[in-house]
């Protein structure tokens, strides 16, 4: 249970916290939600990065979100929680997970070679979306932990559905 006094409406506790500033929440939904529309890069890649970053932060509230459209299995979720990447054989997924591993606490240590590797697979539009989405997932975890947002399981199509939902 979060430590703020909020009676804001919302489809999740995170929304009810950010809903204390409804004009900002509305715009944040659009910003974050645009990344999950699926036209910038495959949702599965975003979901792998999201789950790994949630696991690094030990953020149960972020990890509890289960987007049905992402195509990530329970076995893969468990592997990401443990930090075991051997089940991910696709070279692009390995590149994404290497970046996700560093973004929360070692963003300065991402090497040019790691970036060059991902450029072999993704066009600039997708890379910009990937880095932005990972950075916002990192922020979401930190805000959930700071405010004490509860970790109720949330089954949804995607983590944010603009303009009305943010899980």
């Amino acid at each position: 249970m979060n430590w703020l006094n909020t009676d804001a409406a919302g489809s999740s506790e995170f929304e009810r916290v950010l809903g204390l500033r409804p004009e900002l929440l509305e715009r944040y939904r659009r910003f974050y939600g645009a990344l999950w529309e699926g036209d910038l890069l495959p949702l599965r890649l975003l979901e792998l990065a999201r789950l790994r970053i949630a696991a690094i932060h030990d953020c149960a509230a972020e990890f509890a979100i289960e987007p049905s459209r992402s195509g990530v299995s329970q076995e893969e979720r468990d592997a990401l929680r443990r930090g075991e990447f051997t089940v991910f054989e696709d070279p692009l997924e390995q590149c994404v997970l290497r970046l996700a591993e560093q973004l929360p606490h070692a963003h300065h240590f991402i090497e040019d070679s790691e970036f060059d590797a991902i450029k072999e697979h993704l066009e600039p539009k997708a890379i910009v979306a990937l880095m932005t989405c990972m950075a916002l997932v990192d922020t979401n975890c930190r805000l959930r932990l700071t405010f004490g947002v509860a970790d109720a399981p949330s089954r949804t199509e995607q983590p944010s559905v603009p303009p009305n939902q943010l899980f």
């Binding site: 963003h107 932005t132 950075a135 990192d138 922020t139 930190r142």
Partner: peptide, 18 residues
């Protein structure tokens, strides 16, 4: 708090994109 989250996130985007 949301502002701090945005400052940090966009700083990381800027840094990681060189």
């Amino acid at each position: 708090a949301l502002g701090v989250g945005l400052f940090m996130a966009l700083a990381k985007v800027l840094i990681t994109l060189g």
